[in-house]
Amino acid sequence: MATEANGHSEGGLVFHPMDQFIVKPLFGDGAVGMFTFTNVALWLLLAVACVVALMVLGTSKRATVPTRVQSIAELAYGFVYKMVEDVTGKDAVKYFPYIFTLFIFIAFSNFLALIPTSFSPTSHIAITAILGFGVFIAVTALGFIKNGASFLGLFWVSSAPLALRPILAVIELISYFVRPVSHSIRLAGNIMAGHAVLKVFAGFAAITAVAPLSILGITAIYALEVLVAFIQAYVFTILTCVYLKDALHPSH
């Protein structure tokens, strides 16, 4: 049934909204092993290349009066730095490189995925799950290292009436463990949904009568996706900051 829903034509319309997410090897036609150079690898490395181009080559002049590229790099730096400082606090500045890595990686993956015929790594749950659970495990470990057992006070809401506290603790615990799931699925789902919608609109373009409308729709959705690409990177980063704040200062 899946194939039927997937690649099938009704009245000349062909929808393959999910085909853009297929992982394929770029050299040869073999299986996808762990170390195969696939399109995932290509677009991830392109993201790395873009980060290097922006953050290293762009700032290589160390100009006091910045060039355009350098001022973009400085803008990104200042943006994330201020976010870490405001949301998490001044003592979290030492985790800034990790958070900045996450932000710049997600932002570039999202933006590169908007190039037509490109592959979007951040639409894959495997990838965002590594990011989300990585943040979750790191933050939880950090919470226990910094605060010891008092980190569990995060779940014991001392401002609530005593009778409610156990129930609240269960709810807090569940919501704590749902965090990495929602953290990763939010990113993957947003990007996946946007790209699938683009593909569906593109499918409608096969009908001549609807084609102009479809192209208009693609343009509008594309603009929205540019916004979403940035906002999702921002949201992922700011939520990381919020979780980090909970780990560093559990009593609030």
Partner: peptide
């Protein structure tokens, strides 16, 4: 074309990770 969701294909995950 893809069978099911490509995101859930376990074969590809080690490579992506």
């Amino acid at each position: 074309s893809a069978i099911g969701m490509p995101q859930l294909c376990a074969d590809w995950m080690p490579n992506q990770i």
